[in-house]
């Protein structure tokens, strides 16, 4: 490995990687990611209704969305597409935003990175599609990177049990 490769490895280590296999052909998974009507049916946090304000699938284009809870609370966010290679690869920068599409801070954390770079790859084998999503801070300050790192660590450091307990608490408080 050359010296110049080292920073890349470091960056890789900071990323979140999620892998899932879907029992569907790649073209269909691609459509689910890129057509607003389909995207609105599955994407977003549980309990929110997704509102698609716009989806412009090309480098520099924006997917701008709102999320509304049953009690009327609203949150906005957006993707800015960096790379679009149908039907196998999308690179996008995700962030929270306001209703007008201006980037905002994480609603719950002032030190969360403003922008997260996500790389989606889709591969197909025997009619099944493997999805790999990588995400990491983009243009982040040292403090924002640390928040991202710490948050990952918190989850790994036995907070799981606390969250399970919190789940129960929230379920009973509802």
């Amino acid at each position: 490995m050359t010296e110049t490769n080292k920073p890349d490895v470091d960056v890789m280590d900071r990323q979140l990687v999620i892998t899932r296999v879907f029992d569907a052909p790649r073209d269909l998974v691609w459509k689910a990611w890129t057509e607003p009507d389909r995207l609105a049916l599955w994407w977003g946090p549980k309990g929110f209704k997704l509102m698609v304000a716009g989806l412009d699938l090309r480098p520099g284009g924006v997917f701008h969305y709102g999320m509304r809870t049953a009690n009327g609370q609203e949150m906005w966010g957006k993707f800015v597409y960096v790379e679009v290679v149908a039907p196998e690869r999308i690179v996008l920068i995700s962030s929270f935003s306001d209703a007008a599409g201006n980037i905002t801070r994480h609603p719950m954390s002032a030190a969360w990175p403003l922008e997260v770079m996500n790389t989606l790859t889709l591969t197909e084998h025997d009619g099944k599609t493997t999805l790999i999503l990588r995400g990491g801070p983009h243009n982040a300050t040292a403090e924002e990177r640390k928040t991202f790192e710490d948050a990952k660590t918190n989850v790994q450091m036995g907070f799981k049990g606390t969250f399970d307990q919190l789940d129960e608490y929230l379920a009973s408080a509802r």
């Binding site: 719950m108 954390s109 995400g135 948050a151 969250f163 608490y169």
Partner: peptide
């Protein structure tokens, strides 16, 4: 528990 909810929601936002 309510005070922990933002952290809980945060983890919901990522992984």
């Amino acid at each position: 528990g309510e005070g922990l909810k933002p952290i809980h929601d945060w983890t919901m936002t990522f992984e």
